[in-house]
Design a protein around this nucleic acid. Structure first.
Lengths: 204, 204, 204, 204
DNA sequence: AATGAATGAGACTTCATTCAT
DNA sequence: TATGAATGAAGTCTCATTCAT
């Protein structure tokens, strides 16, 4: 088995264990057992527990960050970009729910990183990228201008995050159809608000 | 110094330390030092680290839960209830940012509770209570009926949660004026959507 | 309540707790609770846990030692003295089973005293006194001379000790009638042996 | 060094320390030092202090129990069986005095086991097995029938136990010749009684 | 590359004892 | 006398990490 394969196995299995037990309650021995190898061997591939965790986060983060950067630069309309973000996250959740789980429970709330600030940085970067897209939408006249971009971003990211939390805590899985409905629902509320049509006298 | 006072001091200092370092990285000795007493003494008042943490969470949770129950039963309009929820949380944040911080970073994402399910239960209870109020709004014709109540709730709670995360991670404090603006902003987006008035052809 | 009374209560209650939980597993707080007072107060009467334990042992030991000394000096026949010893021990057991229990489980096996040698000394003294009486019996021609006094003593003391162990471990209580039968039985085996009359061709 | 060897070393060294200091006063660090290894390593082989102690006791107990069962089933005469029991115990004492010491001071009096009842059970099992053999002797007409089997057993086991206590407390060792004399002595007193031949008017 | 025995810093916790009130 | 809050030494045990094989 070559080096890359081993690393893959370790990362994948560690991901499972971390997302099930949480970082603090995960033992290197648990990971080794899940990966079906001795724990000594893990140290050939990763310097220590934290670096291993970082590798997992980095992998997910890289993909997410790249997507956000790509979207930011793309010529799409801001509204469609926001839809694309949700789509992307739900896709990842579908393929690797554990990865999203870790992001939600450990990274975005920065617990592993209480001391250093890696998690905080990532969260802030994520927030900033979304806010850029939101601001772009405002400039395009697609999104409201009377509200600061950061508030719009709170609502947008928050909706996704909370939705994921519920999914993660409930261990729920996602059918394609359900995914559609969710995107539809969240985006619709975000864009057009929660108020009933009959009750609208918007921003009066 | 009497028993209740000591308990207060311990809880208050533990709250600070927990929220700064996170549960896992907090040492009983740290708390003792912060509270200016021997670590042995903490064990006179709290059975162990977890019970101490629970006491802290419980205190905040009790207040929050009571408020939600009170609101649920009150004759207010659902929209006003949602405003009241945000107001309440921001008030608590203003008075005890650490308490909110712990809730956001440790409890709502359930990391201390990966093993047992105390955190998960609290989160679900919280979600359910909000959803009840949202559903009430739908019945009153105030909130949209074409979207499932849980999606509306994701957006609402998510907005608050993400906002708090940003506040907590940024160690930001809140002026009265800023608080007003935030409530205004989040509620407005939640109720009327992010789309610019000029661009509205809602739910078409 | 005067000093002597308090001491009595502490000793009596400590005796119960020690005999139930054993020395190592007994907390000063347990004793205080049993004695219905604060644990601080115990330290007014006894220097520390070990001294308290010593006081308990000393009390029982004093009575036993005095009895043995008295018997040693008395003009009774050696056989009757041995009967008197058993009688005495069973009487104490009847009145204060816990006291005997402590002696059997903690002192005679010297566990509290593994470090120092108080228990060992007491056990040896006890053994020596019995052996003196046995030797006296040999001189009187009442007990066998062809066996060393210490072997006779092993059998005698051992019978009592094992019997008490069984009583103590089984939490059994003693009726007067049963007591008679036991004395009869043990003494009879000790004096005349376990061999059936029909099978006797003693010391052939 | 392989797994089994290490376990042997730990058990052997722990046995020494336990028998010298007693269970309660034995530190895991003491055992580690005696075994010339880090204390962490002990936990690779034994779950905790109590399990380590149990392993030691179990080893001795297994041998003793098997011997008793073997004797019980053997076609020997009951009297010879009793001799064999004493022989066996003395042999073990000769080879592993510490093992016997632990049994006498810690297990047979059940101090480690004040809470649970492992020690009590073992003691009762031991007693029951001996009593079976004694009863067999009664049925064979070799032992007296006019005394309950349990009383005969008290005397028999007690003699051995007390003798061992004296040996253990005195740290005495055993020559082959002395061993013979002891067996001779104890058995003789047990079988034929302590009374001088000249004074016999047995059971009159 | 691979194993898992070995290490030991350091965490939590207990509880006898002291001491201010 | 009486209380129980307060102390802190000391114990057990965990587990990331190292290292000989």
């Amino acid at each position: 088995m070559d080096k890359i394969d081993r690393e893959r196995i370790i990362i994948d299995e560690a991901l499972k264990v971390f997302s099930q037990k949480g970082y603090a309650d995960t033992r290197m021995a648990d990971i080794a057992k899940a990966a079906n190898m001795s724990y000594g061997l893990i140290y050939h591939y990763f310097e220590n527990k934290e670096k291993l965790f970082d590798a997992i986060v980095e992998e997910w983060w890289r993909g997410f960050y790249d997507e956000l950067e790509r979207l930011k630069k793309s010529p799409m309309q801001a509204g469609d970009k926001l839809v694309a973000i949700i789509k992307f996250i739900l896709d990842v959740y579908n393929q690797k729910p554990n990865q999203v789980s870790i992001f939600v429970t450990e990274v975005s709330r920065g617990f592993v990183y209480h001391v250093n600030s890696k998690g905080k940085d990532k969260f802030n970067t994520l927030f900033a990228l979304c806010q850029d897209i939101v601001r772009e939408g405002q400039l395009q006249g697609v999104l409201r201008n009377d509200i600061q971009a950061n508030y719009l971003t709170y609502v947008f990211l928050g909706a996704i995050d909370t939705f994921l939390s519920v999914m993660v805590l409930g261990n729920e899985s996602l059918t394609k159809k359900r995914e559609e409905r969710i995107i539809e629902g969240i985006i619709s509320v975000f864009l057009y608000g929660a108020v009933a049509a009959s009750a609208v006298d918007k921003k009066a």
